[in-house]
Design a protein around this nucleic acid. Structure first.
Length: 255
DNA sequence: ATGGTTGTTGGACAA
């Protein structure tokens, strides 16, 4: 079973690229983030024509997440923070496996007069607590998406550039540590423990892509039962080089 | 240090 995650940065702008990639890569399941539109405007039929069911949590202009799956999707929950206006979370069951698609808050700018960073930490705190609860209930699960956390120095081209950034600071690392220390396995690092050419995001600006100045912020985390079934993990850099590319590229796990 | 780009929108704001 191939499961992919891709921050597509607008389903409207990216539809041709997304369909092209799906037709080639043939994932069984695709997590999408940053739809940047309401559910009513999601091109459901384009996915159904290709044999996918779709679950959407949309919002005007910002955020938005969706899951496309070859086998039926059962919705468990579509928010992690109660009453959150931002569409960032989908928890479902597919093929008897609990799956969570997240678009975690970016958190920048980090400054006293901005609510962005406190919101990131609040959101992630709620996520960590919820995943702990799933562990207590002994529910095997996988969680994938744009975590907006650079786990370690090796996950970015130049740690100096990211110093102080919301994606690369102590509170974010502490939360990542909680995720891994509760027994969730970073799928990419299971298969590629020392790979430094591992990036999933390159900024549109300043030639980040041609100079390969990227960061690894799109992740899959697996409970041990799922991790035992992991066969392969790849980052597909090809779509980042296409015309009208998203600034992220897909990460694919194979169970 | 700043700005560089893309997307939603039709001027900022987010990333």
């Amino acid at each position: 079973m191939k499961i992919a995650s891709w921050n597509i940065n607008s389903i409207k702008a990216r539809l041709p690229n997304v369909l092209k990639w799906i037709d080639g890569a043939q994932p069984d399941i695709l997590f999408m983030q940053e739809l940047k539109g309401i559910a009513e405007n999601f091109p459901v039929s384009e996915f159904e024509e290709r044999g996918y069911s779709v679950q959407i949590k949309g919002q005007k202009t910002y955020n938005g997440v969706a899951i496309a799956s070859k086998t039926p999707i059962t919705l468990i929950s579509d928010e992690i923070l109660e009453g959150d206006e931002q569409a960032r979370y989908l928890e479902v069951e597919i093929d008897g496996i609990r799956m969570i698609n997240v678009y975690c808050p970016n958190g920048n700018p980090v400054q006293v007069d901005s609510e962005k960073y406190p919101y990131k930490l609040r959101w992630m705190r709620e996520l960590v607590d919820h995943l702990r609860e799933l562990k207590v209930q002994e529910i095997p699960f996988l969680i994938g998406g744009d975590f907006n956390i650079i786990p370690r120095d090796v996950d970015c081209h130049d740690p100096k550039v990211w110093e102080g950034d919301a994606l690369f600071r102590q509170e974010s690392w502490d939360l990542w540590r909680e995720l891994t220390n509760m027994g969730l396995y970073d799928a990419y690092r299971m298969m590629h423990p020392n790979e430094d050419n591992c990036y999933t995001f390159w900024d549109y600006q300043a030639g980040a892509w041609p100079q390969n100045k990227g960061i690894r912020i799109d992740h899959f985390l697996l409970t041990p039962e799922i991790a035992d079934q992991l066969m392969d993990v790849q980052v597909d850099r090809e779509p980042r080089g296409w015309e009208k590319a998203s600034d992220h590229t897909p990460i694919i796990i194979e169970l």
